[in-house]
Design a protein around this nucleic acid. Structure first.
Lengths: 337, 337
DNA sequence: CTGAAAGCGCTAACAT
DNA sequence: ATGTTAGCGCTTTCAG
């Protein structure tokens, strides 16, 4: 059998309540008795049982994280940000993958509740009304990470996707490049839709017509999808001088499809990605990209959640982190013919 | 206040024990009363409190995962394997990053104990005696993943690193390539050491002397380290016809360093990596690599842990998964001058 | 400043 | 087949 708080109390010659007090610092304890307790704890090698503690206090010091897929580089990096701040505030992470399936996401909120997590960080490509409803029923503090609630009722930390794509497109326009292709994800996906909106806005502001033949949609944001889509439809965009891809992986897929036909960037087309994943610097040419503060997205989400949990004052329930454009070789114009 | 098992019992007109029974299937319950209970649960929207359950049953259905860094592609993929199997067996994952620091690893085992996890999956570059001792004191079922206990006392799932590097080296030797460089990680790191052993063994079997000038050590297994080391010492290995790098990222680092001097693979050197990360197919040239069954490493570890937890029969406490060599363009000899 | 006692919500004997 | 009754190990009033 394992040591309990009773054993410590007996060993120290005090009551269990006192032990609890020195453990939690919930009340002042005389230095002398505190020392006795600490000694007893040390001697017995006692460690408090967090489960019992959770039951009695109704706070488990654990928070749930629901995300589509940890093995996705972007999510893994966000998660690292979450975890670091969680550790800092003494919270533990209970992690689950949703595979971006709505029903599973909803079910997971339920099992997270069963686990009595103190709060939830939710990462999804699409925060549907169903899901929002689930959050409200669950009565759990939730922070959306890298997404927003369209209705704005759930606290969130994200970037302004429309503005980011706008900036990306403007980057080319400002340099006199006007035939700009867009490689997006599924048209229904909010991120993809917002970015397309930014792309279109920049074009129309510049007085350019939207040329549908320059718009491609991959089935998701991964490399394989980018390669497949670009391979199949490269001819559509053959007139393009530049490509805005909504993820670094998609950009690379486009590039490799181009290479299959003997093309190269930036010589044949200027190429810009999204996310500034490690990939961007590992490639040759290095990839110009819109940097999302990936790690910070997670870190700030977790920080916001701690504020929610500790009822600290909160200025902003919906925070948008700044993005930036990082210029690298894939858009180096000097290299162009 | 939230619904408890009492509320359900009252609503259904039975005792709480009966509710518990239909919830857990721990005893036969008459169909009729079972239906009443289920109806009551449904009506009240009752969900069992996993914390209370954990305290009473002394099993939390959660397992701890300690790994160096989730944002590392390899670990993230292993983790996904763990998580999938965990979900299948209804376990939850409590995740923590150790940053490969021994003291932190040891501390984390302690906090995992506090959380009353049913078991632990431990991923580390170096399973020191200190850590093994910690496991034994903690009395926790542990499975080492992607590493082994040198003493063989802790169950583990890994690959045979020495054999893998041996095969990689032989791959070149069998094709008449004899000047083979080795790009390893820190010499003290077990993985790196074992792989070097395999490299040396293949050479000596072939009657070739070990040429120290062909051996490079990066400070870790990441791209940046590979680039830095290769940039600084490329001249040392300039006579090499082939390079065995102990990770895909390291291989890419070498390649990009080579490119800085106008070189390219496979034209100037045949290049082989390790791990078969997604990177390998995303690059051009695509990278020949030793495939570790990354996902399976996690999945099999978790499966082994469930066997430990459920006291199922176990044939093998120390399993080695098969590796394989995947030939791609980076070692295509036809392309060589 | 410290102790006694009542739960937290559930499982698991032990009865019936 | 179902009910009764102790706890699980801790936090948290409430007294003193």
């Amino acid at each position: 059998m394992n040591k309990t708080i009773y054993d410590v109390a007996r060993e120290a010659g005090v009551s269990m309540a006192t032990v609890s007090r020195v453990l939690n610092g919930t009340a002042v304890v005389k230095e002398e008795t505190k020392a006795k307790v600490l000694a007893a704890i040390e001697k017995l090698g006692y460690r408090p049982n967090a489960v019992a503690r959770g039951l009695a206090s109704k706070r488990t010091k654990s928070i749930g994280v629901i995300l589509p897929d940890v093995s996705d580089l972007f999510h893994a990096e966000v998660l690292r940000g979450i975890e670091d701040i969680a550790t800092m505030y003494q919270y533990h992470i209970i992690l689950t993958n949703s595979d971006a399936r709505e029903q599973r996401e909803i079910d997971l909120v339920g099992t997270m509740w069963e686990k009595q997590v103190d709060g939830l960080i939710f990462i999804s490509q699409d925060v549907t009304p169903q899901i929002v409803k689930t959050f409200e029923q669950a009565q759990l503090p939730v922070v959306l990470c890298a997404t927003e609630d369209p209705e704005g009722r759930i606290p969130s930390v994200s970037i302004n996707n429309e503005a980011a794509a706008y900036d990306a497109t403007r980057h080319f326009l400002d340099r006199g490049v006007t035939r700009i292709a867009f490689l997006g994800g599924p048209p229904t996906l909010p991120v993809s839709r917002e970015r397309r909106k930014g792309y279109e806005k920049a074009l129309s502001e510049a007085g350019l017509p939207l040329d549908e033949t320059l718009v491609l949609h991959a089935r998701d944001l991964h490399y394989e999808a980018g390669l497949a889509t670009a391979s199949a439809f490269l001819h559509k965009t053959s007139g393009a001088d530049a490509v805005v891809a909504v993820s670094d992986e998609l950009a690379l897929g486009y590039l490799n499809a181009l290479r299959e036909r003997g093309g190269e960037a930036p010589q044949d087309v200027l190429l810009l990605g999204f996310d500034n994943t490690r990939l961007a610097t590992m490639l040759r040419p290095q990839l110009t990209t819109i940097a999302q503060p990936t790690y910070d997205l997670g870190a700030v989400s977790m920080r916001l959640l701690t504020k929610l949990l500790h009822e600290e004052a909160i200025e902003q329930y919906t925070v948008q982190l700044p993005h930036s454009i990082i210029e690298r070789d894939s858009t180096a114009r000097e290299a162009r013919a």
